[in-house]
């Protein structure tokens, strides 16, 4: 899932300081699961903003809505009937959702309430870790299914650096060295020889270094 977390409250207040009526839009997908921008968090932000305004002696009217997804036009369009009644839209989706709203509602200010962090996985309640950077040419087939792009601080492709110590990355004792994990896993699978093939220079053009990316499926296009 895409993992995000709420921006500092002051930053959000700063966006809407001059508004009288706002629409807070949550998203029912990733950000609901990582407890950052679902229906519940929309309610809490709405309550918090109203209180912050009350404190200043001002009123704030808030419409709370949580779309099924903010990264699909059919759901984004659901706001079209009433969005113009509000001074601004605060999106609690990931950066993708914020942009879909901004592109769909050209005449409306749209602000992000979250910082979008990474593509990751839940590691128990309240903990999420980065797992993939969307490099566009997945190497997991050669690394025992563990990603050295996203999970090695240096994105090394041919084994660990000299800083790997007791299974931990040199950047922090709380971060596993993914190369240690890869080696342990391939050893367990009796497949360590897989690492003898030297990785050629990786093509980063499909990793975003060649500009914004796009996927087109001719068979699905309307």
């Amino acid at each position: 899932m895409i993992v995000g977390e709420r921006k500092p409250f002051d930053e959000i207040v700063g966006f809407v300081r001059d508004c009288k009526k706002i629409l807070i839009a949550g998203c029912n997908e990733c950000v609901t699961v990582c407890c950052a921008g679902g229906k519940k968090e929309v309610g809490i932000l709405s309550s918090a903003l109203k209180m912050a305004f009350s404190k200043e002696g001002k009123d704030l009217e808030v419409k709370e809505v949580t779309l099924e997804r903010q990264c699909d036009p059919e759901y984004v369009q659901q706001l079209s009937e009433y969005y113009d009644q509000y001074d601004a839209i605060v999106s609690m989706a990931c950066g993708v959702g914020v942009q879909e709203l901004a592109m769909s509602y050209q005449d409306k200010l749209v602000f992000p309430a979250l910082n979008t962090n990474f593509m990751g996985a839940s590691q128990g309640q309240g903990v999420w870790e980065e797992r993939c950077q969307g490099c566009g040419a997945c190497v997991l087939g050669r690394t025992g299914g563990l990603c050295p792009i996203a999970r090695c601080a240096k994105s090394l492709l041919n084994g660990p650096c000299g800083g790997s110590m007791n299974g931990k990355c040199e950047i922090s004792k709380d971060v596993d060295c993914v190369w240690q994990l890869i080696i342990d896993r391939l050893t367990g699978l009796n497949q360590l020889q897989m690492l003898e093939d030297i990785f050629p220079v990786k093509d980063w053009s499909c990793a975003g270094h060649g500009g914004p990316r796009k996927v087109v499926r001719e068979d699905l296009k309307s």
Binding site: K40, G43, I44, S47, A48, K50, M51
Partner: peptide, 11 residues
């Protein structure tokens, strides 16, 4: 109890 209940009490 949830955060929203306590927040709304204050609000």
């Amino acid at each position: 109890i949830d955060v929203i209940h306590m927040m709304e009490a204050f609000r």
